[in-house]
Amino acid sequence: MKHACKRVSQLTSDSFERELSLTEKMQLKLHFAMCSLCRNYHQRLATMAGIFEQMREHDLNQDIQLPIEDKQRIQSVLEKEK
């Protein structure tokens, strides 16, 4: 019980990575029921996950293009290959 929060923090992160086993889910649920700090930590991770979801949706790189010189170079390489 004593080392609970440290161990629970790994499980909390894992819940964003993989499907937890039934036992693990129970452990989290039980611990969250009595520990507001770990609930808060979970909420912070959920907020971060939401931010990264936004990031993936609004691809900041969407205007970046392959430089024109590189296009020309690749084109001539491809032509040689034909």
């Binding site: 440290k6 909420q43 907020t47 990031m55």
Partner: peptide
């Protein structure tokens, strides 16, 4: 490196508080 976030007995070193802002607004 996670040891620095927890005390010897595995409880939080700095008690995490809740964040209020929603992800869309932050983004």
């Amino acid at each position: 490196p996670t040891s620095t976030y927890f005390s010897e007995n595995g409880s939080w070193q700095d008690s995490p508080s809740a964040w209020r802002d929603n992800p869309e607004a932050l983004w």
